[in-house]
Design a protein around this nucleic acid. Structure first.
Lengths: 148, 148
DNA sequence: TTATAAATGAAAATGATTATCATTAACAAT
DNA sequence: ATTGTTAATGATAATCATTTTCATTTATAA
């Protein structure tokens, strides 16, 4: 599936240009199964795109995050990880994170049930604490089998 | 209320010593209303404890976290923040975080309702993904009134 | 009181991320 | 197709939180 046109359009609407680094980063995120860090992306793209700079990876990820195309996860070890956000409700999930190696597992168990609760909590909080709420995250932290 | 004896005992049980830096950091966390970063703590303690090193603050926080005395929150701006965990069920709460300034608000709305859901999710995940789950976090991310 | 291992603090090191700036390239208007 | 404007890039240096190192101090068990 190629959301490329969608992105291209969204970029134009925000006066952002469609460039080779951006395309290949989006392409990689689309192909990737899990969550990728900036360095993961840099390393994965290097063979086919040796000119790419790590700075550009960071900048692109920040742009994609700002445009809501990508979701950022920060718990775990000290580095941010990113995944494409599908927009499909069926793909809504939360995270199970290994605090030792940083591995992130997407889970979809009970998310249906969470939804209603999240919705009303979000509404109550926004009003009560004068926040514009942009996102929520539900995470379980622990140690994965490999790290034990 | 002085949980000092509790902590002292817990330290001894783990072959950790009861020292001046540790006592004053715990004391500060006990008095503090919100979440404190390592630098917050360092700065707050400096006047009465000029000898204290930032390194020790980090080390102490890590120890307290390892002993389960303190909870660590990492989203928001790039720095970790810590709060004493009370152990009282009534104090169970989640976080509303301003992604611009890092401010953390504790909320207790609907936590009761979350509890059951969290419990069964945790159990299912632990089994399904072979994780030893140590903690969970539910966060809402947004921009607070002051930052807008 | 003493021996020993843990804890400390100063300084340097690390690792992720961000700022700077000269150069390059996208693309709207011609 | 050409060009001018401006965003994007990449190399380098800077920043900022956190860790490591190591020589010195100190808590505490014996």
């Amino acid at each position: 599936m190629h959301a490329r046109h969608q992105w291209h359009r969204q970029f134009r609407a925000n006066a952002c240009r469609w460039t080779a680094p951006r395309e290949s980063i989006l392409d990689l995120l689309g192909r990737a199964k899990g969550h990728l860090s900036a360095k993961d992306i840099y390393a994965a793209l290097y063979p086919s795109f040796p000119g790419l700079g790590l700075t550009t990876v960071y900048r692109t990820l920040e742009l994609l995050h700002r445009l809501g195309i990508v979701q950022k996860v920060t718990s775990g070890d000290g580095q941010g990880r990113y995944e494409l956000r599908s927009g499909q409700a069926k793909d809504h999930h939360h995270h199970l994170i290994c605090t030792r190696c940083g591995r992130i597992v997407n889970y979809r168990d009970f998310v249906e049930e969470e939804l209603e609760l999240v919705r009303k909590t979000e509404e109550a909080l926004a009003k009560k604490y004068d926040f514009v709420i942009q996102d929520h995250s539900i995470e379980f932290l622990g140690i994965c089998g490999t790290c034990r």
